[in-house]
Amino acid sequence: MRGYLVFLKKELFEYTKTYKLLIMVLVFVIFGITNPLVAKLTPVILKSFMTDGIIITLPEPTAYDAWMQFFKNATQMGIIVMVILFSGVLSSELSKGTLINLLTKGLSRKSVILSKYTCMVLVWTVSIALCFGLTYGYTVYLFPKEDTPNLLFSVSCLWLFGLFLLAVLLFSAALVKSSYGCLFITVIVMAACIIMNIIPSIHRYNPISLATDNMGLLVGSIEASSLYDAILVSSLFSMIFVSLSAMIFQKKQL
């Protein structure tokens, strides 16, 4: 337990020193601010392109447009930046050999894996919370008196999907040596999830529904209860992947 806490502190310090924390937070802050702004300004920008011959009729932007931007940015750019930043989670220390000293001094390998996962989850949670808070604040400011149901549930689904993705990332980092291999396996798992999503009966249990059904939840075309299975599957698989990576790392030749 002590090893876990000490290593967690070291991980957090490393993230600040390597600018990973700064980048994650700033990227999500910038998204948080631009989401409502882009939603509000899109009609204005399009109108400036309009010449005499063309008439484009645009509906008034609503809070839904702002949240559409939020879910689009967070699930695409946000998650890509996160995966690339964290792809060296194990490989950088293994290739430099700095981890071996700590392990020979009695730090258990299990606590290395657990604290690395906790740290990634912490950074992801802070980033998505900041992004959500900023988008929420500015959306209320720009589009007052507009109600968006299921908002918190929808964002929590996205957060849980991030947890699942980080577990996959950690698992692939334990499996292969290089950070590119880790990226490659994570991308393959995600691609498999996306392809499987085509089959309607799997969609219900597929973790990726947590990142694709968000707008449907807000608009009301998707029932919240239809995602419960996916939530269960994602939490289960996150735990399985983290324990598997601990087991693999335990036996790994360093």
Binding site: L26, V29, I30, I33, T34, P36, L41, Y138, Y141
Partner: peptide, 15 residues
Amino acid sequence: YLPFLVPLVIAQLAL
């Protein structure tokens, strides 16, 4: 749009 632009510019500049 100043309440948007100021924090946005600060964040971009910081980066």
